[in-house]
Write a protein that binds this DNA or RNA. Structure first.
Length: 886
RNA sequence: GGGCGAAUAACUCAGCUGGGAGAGUGCAACCCUUACAAGGUUGAAGUCACAGGUUCGAGCCCUGUUUCGCCCACCA
């Protein structure tokens, strides 16, 4: 036996790396393109190539790995498809920053060279996160790793674009969009993050011609006034009902602009007069459309004032705000300024304030796609778990606006549209054309814009499997089983995959969407670099081991909105890993290469019990994982391993293992011990892959990897009836032991003192249980002498524990402390009395007897009977004790 | 403005279709009993946010209130 080589404490460093490399090199994570086995697929939410592993990834990956490893243990053909996302703006920003450090701008470099640089960066430092996923133990099929910009995926993107265009679902047009002046690109509505901000509301007089009077408008953005093409009032507004003027003068410019009337204007806000800037405000844009107003852009792509703003030209938009206000004040046109909290949009990549701006962009007409995607969830083809997210999903799908998909950056899928310089023809092609398809001219130019990153991610579930080719992989694995993700990208990603999947595959991309919580710090705050509250998952792994960390995440993964991460908790599960390690160390001292078969007919009660519990646990773990209740699964196996296997079972079989009951018993116990340890390792493997594999490799009786061991059966070789009896009997034995321990502790008998006990029982079965498990009681309660007595009246001093129909007397000659035992008994009686009261109250209630279901009434009656028996016996003992005191 | 969620032991949280409240940590006491002190045994600790209602019975269902968090929306 090699237990000498096992360290006392489990040390994960080195072990994790060893096993991960072995699994990978042996191809244990590989899926089969075609197979008779049940197919099970998950596509990874592709992290950004720029990504660094954070807690959110860790939870997300752990959950998926648990499901994949669990399915493999059940013999499925599992595909966990990995890859990364090119993350257009984010990646471009990083490379630009690097270049800036060398004093080079991307414009200086030119498009082609710049994109080359990005690829170089990607090869060198991109995808670092993949190695971090491996540290976690992620069992992805790495040979299939994909990238949203690789050839296959790019082909898929083109095909989808062209088809959507041909279906009339992609169009180009001049609309107001969200513009980031820092990234100099358009953004979709989703890519704008709104934040409440302390601003000012400026009241400005727009005078009538040749008058000191005018309309006072209220605005938070005076700098846009140069683009005003009207002032709007509500026709119902009393204040403006008698207005005769048709125009006002736009201050600082001298231009005349019309007064329009529209019910859109809120009479409650400001002065009830609204300046209208169709080129820089989405609402004003619609208003302008309705009233055929001119659209005048006054802020350029970099956020500076344009030539048409006169002396303000060239100023930054916020500088201009100050300057304009000052100028207005000087002219006496600023009526007042009051503070106002409003919500301002920021770029989700660089946090710059977004400028709503008129621009020519490409859009996807999403309504028809959204309809299909919405229906797929309504009719149950895809299930969202937890279900309350469905409502959010529907809500969004129902109110969706067209998706701006063009980005004015260089890193990404270039829009496959060419324009002919000669005849103006527009070509939308899957393969690059070399001449105009209508006039044959060679002077054609491709659109310079690239597509929104999320456009390619939307195709991920099928593009990664080889679409548009008809691959075996698609046939085998599409639609995938589950998509696991946080709710923060429900709209960005999940909704769009649903749209593209239903449209291009004719089937949903996944059957289940499991939305997990977001990980926050221990105070419930979002982890962010600026707050400095980020816990680095890799550091946690270094410190506590990947297994402990994964188990913590699983235990935390209750279906909810967020989980609070604390290292304290990880430490607890590190201890659990260590507990398992030591249980294995102990077991290995007793196991041999051949421990024989389990002879079900000769097993001890403890053996039968642990087999029954193993089966029950296997069932609970399966159910937990299959229903996305990972915390239930984790706590079931935790409870089993620590408290049932270690605390009770291992202690209970020590007499047998040390051959205090003969060779035969020892052999039987070994066979069961082996089986239960193996089952425990397998059940734990999805949660703690490394330590379970390490221990597995040390078992003398098994070969191969724990990954292929097969998930334990759910019956344990016992019938349900047997299991019931066994658990009841064992429960009784535990109570007897706990009763004795309680007496020892409460009346302060040292643990080193061996006890003498006398058992009195009126129940044959109970006597038999104690008798046949005598050594268990002796060992666990530290008893040296155990006798049965038919006589319940004792002449010697004793403390008594009552369990069902049995009274256990702990004999206390010389050591008894009457007072302590009296207090203990009284306390016990008090407790019982209380319980008895509540039970009787129910049984005395006629409506309860009348209306409650029979089995409930029956149960309560039994409870009452048990409590009464116990109560009687306790009183008897208390009375005797008092007698002896005198 | 609309929607979603949370409030349970000192702390962090479980508690799925209503039957009488659990875990981990922490706390207290005792113990280095030949796997484990990263451990063992025993114990204390809760008007389940508040107010009503439905029910024989409510942490769970209904109504309202308070506090906190998140998401969405065209808050000049």
């Amino acid at each position: 036996m090699s237990s000498d080589s096992l360290e006392k404490g489990y040390n994960p460093s080195g072990i994790e790396k060893k096993w991960y490399e072995l699994w990978e090199s042996k191809g244990f994570f590989a899926a089969e393109d075609k197979s008779d086995k049940q197919a099970y697929a998950i596509v990874i939410p592709p992290p950004n190539v720029t990504g660094v592993l954070h807690m959110g990834h860790a939870l997300n990956i752990t959950i998926q790995d648990i499901m994949c490893r669990y399915r493999r243990l059940n013999g499925d053909n599992v595909l966990w498809m990995p890859g990364t996302d090119h993350a257009g703006i984010a990646t471009q920003n990083i490379v630009e920053k690097n270049l800036a450090a060398q004093g080079v701008s991307r414009e200086e470099l030119g498009r082609e060279k710049f994109v080359e640089q990005v690829w170089k960066w990607k090869e060198k430092s991109g995808g670092a996160i993949i190695n971090q996923l491996k540290r976690l133990g992620a069992s992805c099929d790495w040979d299939r790793e994909r990238f949203t910009m690789d050839q296959g995926l790019s082909a898929a993107v083109r095909k989808v674009f062209v088809e959507l265009y041909n279906q009339g679902l992609i169009y180009q047009g001049q609309y107001i969009i969200n513009w980031c002046p820092r990234c100099t690109t358009a953004l979709s509505d989703l890519e704008v993050e709104y934040e409440d901000q302390d601003s000012f509301l400026y009241y400005i007089t727009y005078p009538f011609e040749n008058s000191r009077n005018g309309l006072v408008v209220a605005t938070t953005r005076p700098e846009t006034m140069f683009g005003d093409t009207a002032v709007a009032v509500n026709p119902e507004d009393e204040r403006h009902r008698n207005l005769v003027e048709q125009e006002v003068c736009l201050p600082l410019t001298g231009k005349k602009i019309p007064i329009i009337r529209d019910a859109y204007v809120d009479t409650e806000f400001g002065t009830g007069a609204l300046k209208v800037t169709p080129a820089h405000d989405p609402n004003d844009f619609t208003l302008g459309e309705k009233h055929s107003l001119k659209r005048i852009k006054v802020i350029d792509d970099n956020g500076n004032m344009m030539e048409n703003t006169g002396k303000f030209a060239g100023l930054d938009r916020f500088e201009c705000r100050k300057a304009a206000v000052a100028a207005l004040e000087e002219q006496g046109l600023l009526v007042k300024t009051e503070p106002l909290q409003n919500s301002v949009g920021h770029c989700y990549r660089c946090k710059t304030v977004v400028e709503p701006s008129l621009s020519k962009q490409w859009f996807v007409k999403v309504a028809p796609l959204a309809q299909e995607a919405s229906d797929a969830v309504k009719n149950g083809q895809t299930k969202i778990i937890p279900d309350n997210w469905s409502k959010t999903y529907f809500e969004w799908m129902d109110n969706i606006r067209d998706w701006c998909i063009s980005r004015q950056i260089w890193w990404g899928h270039r829009i496959p549209v060419w324009n002919c310089a000669r005849c103006g023809a527009v070509m939308v092609e899957e393969t690059d054309p070399d001449r105009c398809s209508s006039c044959g001219a060679r002077e054609i130019a491709q659109e310079s814009d690239v597509l929104d990153t999320w456009f390619s991610s939307a195709l991920w579930p099928f593009s990664t499997m080889g679409w548009p080719e008809k691959t075996d992989l698609l046939k085998t694995f599409y639609p995938t089983a589950s998509l696991v993700t946080g709710f923060d990208i429900l709209f960005f990603w999940v909704a769009r995959m649903m749209m593209m999947g239903t449209r291009f595959m004719g089937d949903v991309p996944f059957k289940d969407v499991y939305i997990h919580a977001l990980v926050r710090d221990e105070n419930g705050k979002k982890m962010s670099k600026s707050k400095g509250n980020v816990i680095d998952p890799i550091k946690v792994i270094d410190h506590y081991g990947a297994d402990a960390f994964r188990f913590t995440l699983a235990a935390f993964a209750a279906q909810g909105r967020d989980v609070k991460m604390s290292e304290n908790r990880v430490e607890g599960y590190r201890n659990f890993v260590n507990k398992l390690w030591n249980a294995a160390r102990f077991s290995l001292m007793h196991l041999e290469a051949d421990n024989g078969d389990i002879e079900y007919n000769n097993l001890s009660l403890a053996d039968q019990w642990i087999l029954s519990r193993t089966a029950a646990t296997a069932s609970a773990v399966s159910q937990g994982i299959e229903s996305y209740r990972f915390n239930d699964a984790a706590s079931a196996v935790y409870q089993f391993v620590w408290h049932e296997f270690c605390d009770w079972y291992l202690e209970a079989i020590k007499p047998a293992l040390y051959e205090k009951e003969g060779v035969e018993k020892k052999k039987l116990a070994r066979a069961v011990l082996e089986k239960v340890l193996e089952s425990s390792l397998v059940m734990l493997h999805p949660f703690m892959p490394f330590v379970t594999e390490e221990i597995w490799s040390m078992l003398p009786s098994v070969e191969g990897s724990v990954m292929h061991a097969g998930f334990p059966g759910r019956t344990g070789g016992l019938s349900a009836m047997q299991a019931d009896t066994v658990e009841n009997d064992m429960g009784f034995l535990f109570e007897v032991i706990s009763g004795i321990r309680n007496i020892r502790s409460e009346i302060k008998i040292k643990p080193s003192t061996l006890l003498s006990i006398r058992v009195h029982t009126t129940d044959q079965a109970e006597q038999r249980i104690i008798e046949t498990n005598r050594s268990v009681v002796e060992n666990l309660a530290r008893v040296e002498s155990l006798v049965f007595s038919s006589n319940n009246t004792s002449t010697t001093a004793s403390a008594a524990a009552v369990v069902k129909n049995t009274t256990v007397h702990v004999l206390l000659e010389g050591v008894i402390d009457f007072d302590k035992e009296e207090t203990r008994l009284s306390k016990e009686i008090e407790k019982i009395t209380k319980e008895l009261l509540s039970v009787s109250k129910r049984l005395n209630n006629e409506s309860f007897l009348d209306k409650a279901p029979e089995d409930v009434v029956e149960k309560v009656k039994e409870q009452q009977a048990d409590l009464e028996t116990k109560n009687d016996k306790l009183h008897l003992n208390l009375a005797r004790l008092k007698e002896m005191k005198h």
